[in-house]
Amino acid sequence: MTRHEGRLGALAEIDSSAAELADRMVGLSVRGLPPGYVNGEFVFTRRGRLGGDGRWTAVPEGRSVRYSAIVALGVAALPEDAQRAALAGDTVLDLVGNLVKGLPDVGNLGDVALVAWAAAEAGHPGLDRALQRLAELEGALRPGDPVHTVEASWALAALVAAHRVSHGAADLDRRLDHARERLLTGLGDDRLYRHVLGPASWYRAHVGCFADQVYPLQALARLHAHTGDAAALKAAERIAAGICAAQGPQGQWWWHYDARTGGVVEGYPVYSVHQLSMAPMALLDLADAGGTSYMKEIALGLHWMTSRPEIDDELIVEELDLTWRKAARDDPKKIVRGVRAVATAINQGSRLGVLDRIYPPLAVDRECRPYELGWLLYAWVFSLPRDTPGTQG
């Protein structure tokens, strides 16, 4: 039995219709990736455009190293024929090779970490080059410099993956310890993770978004699976319990949290990628690493995609093989987010409920970014090996 079958089988024991949806979305993702694959890399987004005939199309825009690397992670889990189907004839080694070639021009720590992670997962010979570029960017940081939680998490996940395939080569032990310590120290006594590890603007210093919880949860669970690190598992369990306690009654994975308490600062938008991909990915990795299983919460989140109180519009668009990005407030200037961040900084737990009436969550963001489909494949197809606890390779 493959991990894909195992995860869906475990979900089917709890909720067969949720498992059927997840299985259907795996196929949609493979079909939906090629339209965004241009000259060996992925576009930034496919933006919905309504034609004169009343039908939607999705127009490719921009390019993204970050999203290309995330797709590489997801596609690496597929057999070669499915890789070629998803990548318009290419394999994941072709995609990762293109990313490695472009590394000298990439200056974002998170993007480089994702490329290194993808190279490790795909078994690409450019892994050493990616690790070197990651070391260069890490070396440019001064003591006390703020680092985004998401980027620090991707760096740890990349080093865990590289450490596994490199069997503890050279300086990876030291680098892995540093990345681990940075992430664990960044959590401190908070209930959840903040957006930045280190100094941040006073009015948002206490706020962390959903991604700021999912990626450290995933990285720490993977670290525990590889090394048996008890502190990493304990922190991962804290984050998982926190986001699941805050989950909405219809399965919504909310957007912004007060890291000090775990309370929700602002719930919207609710993103399709959170419901279908990111929450399942991290929580399933935790379970695979020997942690708590949150299969009921995963199933509830999946069901939001097909039945939700906020909007009637379909978010799964079968004819375009994509999902629309989010259900959001009609609040283009993000007033609600800003006001509630300030309010909770001044008065912990403040909600300002009148904002829900002024800006109800009735809008649909009609675009689809490639990473949404890449993480979906990674969530439901990837096989997480679990090493003997306490070993290092």
Rank of each mutant, 00 (worst) to 15 (best):
I243V: 15
Q213R: 06
C244T: 15
Q247N: 11
A221E: 01
G228N: 01
A246F: 13
L233H: 06
Y215D: 01
P216K: 02
A245P: 09
R238A: 08
A235K: 11
Q218H: 11
A235I: 09
A221V: 04
Q247K: 07
Q247G: 14
A211W: 13
H226N: 00
Y215A: 00
Q213D: 06
I239M: 14
K234N: 07
T227F: 00
G228Y: 03
I243D: 09
G251E: 15
L233E: 07
Q247P: 15
L223M: 01
Q218W: 10
P216A: 02
A219P: 12
G242C: 09
L233S: 08
A230L: 05
T227D: 01
A232L: 04
L217S: 05
A221T: 05
A225P: 02
I239D: 14
L233T: 07
A245M: 12
H224S: 06
D212A: 07
A241M: 10
A231M: 05
V214Q: 02
A211E: 09
A225M: 02
A230D: 04
A245Q: 11
T227R: 10
P249G: 10
A219K: 04
Q213G: 07
F210L: 14
G251P: 09
I243F: 10
D229N: 02
H226T: 00
A219D: 01
A231H: 09
F210A: 13
V214I: 14
A246Q: 09
Q213A: 06
Q218Y: 11
Q213N: 06
A235M: 14
A241T: 09
L217I: 03
E237G: 13
F210M: 14
H226C: 00
G228V: 04
P216M: 05
G251S: 13
A241W: 08
L233G: 08
L220R: 02
R238V: 09
E237F: 08
F210V: 06
